[in-house]
Computed example of a mutant assay.
Amino acid sequence: MADDSTTTMKALFETRAAADLAVEHLVQQHGISRSDIFIQSTTAENTVGVSQSGGDVSANDNARQDAPLAGEIEVSADISANDVAAVQRSLGEAGAIRVSAG
């Protein structure tokens, strides 16, 4: 018999780019609706993560000085208990530094 329960998966990322990639993995590989995926700072501050990426870094390695590097980014979603292992792998492949379920 299949397990119909759900669990909340949470993953922490060092950059907004990695968090965005994780969202794409959740949507495209696991069929989770974007409206069921939540992204937030792990601190009370606005943040793009703890290290610069994407638009915060120019081609000649001159990083912007105004990027808000105020903490990690958390991505969370409620998923089927049957999908925990597969979703955990996908989040890791996207660059999660820590993944938890429960």
Score class of each variant (00 low, 15 high):
2 A>F: 14
4 D>E: 12
4 D>Q: 15
4 D>R: 11
9 M>A: 14
10 K>V: 06
11 A>L: 08
12 L>R: 05
12 L>P: 03
14 E>A: 08
15 T>W: 00
15 T>Q: 07
16 R>W: 13
17 A>W: 02
18 A>P: 07
19 A>E: 03
20 D>C: 06
23 V>H: 01
24 E>R: 14
27 V>P: 00
28 Q>A: 12
28 Q>I: 07
28 Q>E: 11
29 Q>I: 11
30 H>F: 12
31 G>D: 06
32 I>A: 05
34 R>P: 09
36 D>N: 15
37 I>R: 09
39 I>C: 08
40 Q>H: 13
40 Q>R: 11
40 Q>P: 04
40 Q>K: 14
41 S>K: 13
43 T>A: 02
44 A>N: 15
46 N>V: 15
47 T>C: 10
47 T>K: 00
49 G>K: 03
49 G>N: 04
52 Q>M: 12
53 S>R: 05
53 S>N: 15
54 G>D: 07
56 D>I: 00
56 D>N: 01
57 V>S: 01
57 V>E: 07
59 A>V: 14
59 A>L: 12
61 D>R: 10
62 N>M: 04
65 Q>N: 12
67 A>S: 06
69 L>H: 08
71 G>M: 09
72 E>A: 05
73 I>V: 11
74 E>I: 00
75 V>M: 13
77 A>F: 03
80 S>F: 01
82 N>H: 14
83 D>H: 15
83 D>Y: 08
84 V>Y: 15
84 V>F: 14
84 V>A: 02
85 A>K: 06
87 V>I: 15
87 V>D: 01
89 R>K: 13
90 S>Q: 06
91 L>T: 03
94 A>V: 05
96 A>K: 06
96 A>G: 13
97 I>T: 12
98 R>G: 01
99 V>Y: 00
99 V>G: 01
100 S>A: 11
101 A>K: 10
101 A>G: 10
101 A>V: 15
102 G>S: 14
